[in-house]
Design a protein around this nucleic acid. Structure first.
Length: 232
DNA sequence: AACGAGGTCAACCGCGCGTCG
DNA sequence: GCGACGCGCGGTTGACCTCGT
């Protein structure tokens, strides 16, 4: 079989055929590249996508892109919809409570942005990821973070205890000491972040006088860290 | 006013996983 | 079992914006 195959490939007509197929493939690829749009979305494209999804629903993104007449990949359409056009997307600054929650969840899960985003209604994983990279990672301060995270864990655990959620012995602990039982998951869905934030603020954590950090609550969070592994 | 540095964020890319024929 | 396809995720890029000099 291999002998006859090599004979075929070596023959003149076979080489011509292969060349012809290659040329055709290149031509097709070139057409696709010319037709597919990239980069920022226009208002018209946004309208087309929004209208199409409102009529037909989302999913099957590649088919959707073709049927809607958008010269975009399915991936691009999905991203645009999920991160920007979806009606329940929240825009604007990340609040102090949200920052606190991101900090706490990141200490538990690391860079699991989509998982973290599930706990911040209206926020996308992309937004949280960008927030972390630009506002937190940049100002990483290894001196400040470990004691703060330790305090957050204490506050969370004491709140859990008040609610009758057992964490220490009954459930398995994550790499940062947070439990992962179903009971705590239920609790986590109802974390009172305002209470937690005010508790920490009352304790003077935002100023961090003893650790050399300065600034307001918002400013403080900018001293946050790279991730759980940094101070593990 | 002009310019460069740094920050922000929308969009892209590559990879892995699940599903289906 | 296998390949094609769709989808979701995390990492990265690059255009645009802001601010300081």
């Amino acid at each position: 079989l291999s002998l006859s195959l090599s004979n075929l490939i070596c023959s003149k007509s076979a080489r011509e055929l292969i060349h012809k197929v290659d040329m055709e493939t290149e031509k097709q690829n070139a057409i696709v590249e010319v037709e597919l749009r990239r980069g920022p979305w226009t208002v018209e494209e946004d309208l087309i996508l929004t209208n199409y999804i409102s009529k037909h629903g989302e999913g099957r993104w590649n088919t959707l892109a073709k049927c809607a007449g958008l010269k975009r990949t399915g991936k691009s359409c999905r991203l645009r919809w999920l991160n920007y056009l979806r009606p329940d997307v929240r825009r604007g600054n990340i609040t102090a409570e949200e920052q606190l929650l991101i900090l706490e969840l990141h200490s538990r899960w690391g860079n699991r942005w989509s998982k973290i985003a599930q706990h911040l209604p209206g926020r996308t994983d992309n937004e949280i990821k960008n927030f972390w990279r630009t506002r937190m990672q940049k100002h990483a301060n290894q001196q400040c973070m470990p004691p703060l995270l330790e305090r957050i864990r204490t506050v969370v655990d004491s709140s859990r205890a008040v609610m009758g959620v057992h964490t220490a012995s009954a459930s398995s602990s994550g790499r940062n000491g947070f439990s992962s039982s179903s009971a705590t998951s239920n609790y986590d869905d109802h974390l009172d972040l305002k209470d937690m934030a005010s508790t920490l603020e009352e304790e003077g954590w935002p100023e961090f006088p003893a650790h050399g950090c300065e600034g307001s609550m918002l400013g403080f969070w900018e001293f946050s860290a790279m991730g759980p592994n940094m101070y593990a």
